Amino acid sequence: MRVITAVRGDITEQHVDAIVNAANSSLLGGGGVDGAIHRKGGKRILEECRALRASHYGKGLPAGEAVATTAGQLPARWVIHTVGPVWSAEQDRSDLLAACHRNSLAVARELGARTVAFPAISTGIFSWPVADAARIAVGAVQEAVDKSAFDEVRFVLFDQMAYDTYAELIGGA
């Protein structure tokens, strides 16, 4: 089995140790992946996010950083929240997008997670072009996985075009 894989599906239905949430900086839910995770995961995720805001992240979680909570009612054990950067034609924010993946995997390692599922961070409302986001994400994960002991790092893509893009970079899925 390949350590890095791509599947087409719903990240909230993944049976993995940790799913990564493409969160907004408030950590309090939102649209897209973030909203789906909060809705399906239930109130425990929101309660832990509120506690994080009250303690360490009063101004919100900065882009590129990652923090974990329970997964509530999701089939995973943990949710790792990371805030992707908004795409900009004027400013290269690739390092921040790569940091989302590296830092999420660092949190997963600290938790003891052996399987992790990522969405296509920043490609929704943050407007990052899918092909570029995939190149950055897969590269960052390949770099991080070489240095650690994950059984599987899975990219979970909601639509066929995104799946095809990630799967091609990974070398098939």
Rank of each mutant, 00 (worst) to 15 (best):
M1Q: 14
M1E: 12
A6T: 02
A6I: 00
V7A: 02
V7P: 01
G9N: 09
G9P: 08
T12M: 07
T12S: 04
I19C: 01
S25V: 10
S25L: 09
S26I: 06
S26R: 01
L27A: 04
L27K: 02
L27I: 08
G30L: 15
G30A: 14
D34K: 02
D34Q: 07
D34A: 12
H38A: 07
K40Y: 07
G41N: 04
G41I: 05
E47Q: 11
E48D: 03
R50P: 06
R50N: 13
A51M: 13
A51L: 14
L52R: 10
R53G: 03
A63K: 03
G64E: 06
G64Y: 03
A66H: 05
V67K: 00
T69D: 02
A71L: 07
A71F: 03
P75Y: 09
R77N: 08
I80N: 03
V83M: 01
W87M: 10
W87A: 11
W87R: 12
S88N: 09
A89Q: 12
A89P: 08
E90W: 15
R93H: 09
S94T: 14
L97S: 12
L105I: 11
L105Y: 02
L105D: 08
E110W: 11
A113P: 05
R114F: 09
V116Q: 04
A117L: 02
A120W: 01
A120E: 02
S122Q: 06
S122L: 04
S122F: 03
I125M: 06
S127D: 13
D132Y: 10
A133M: 10
A133S: 13
A140L: 11
V141N: 05
Q142V: 06
E143R: 10
A144K: 09
V145R: 11
S148F: 10
A149W: 06
F150H: 13
D151A: 15
V153L: 03
R154L: 08
F155D: 03
V156D: 00
L157G: 04
D159Q: 07
M161I: 04
A162I: 01
E168C: 04
L169W: 10
G171P: 08
G171S: 09
A173L: 09
A173H: 07
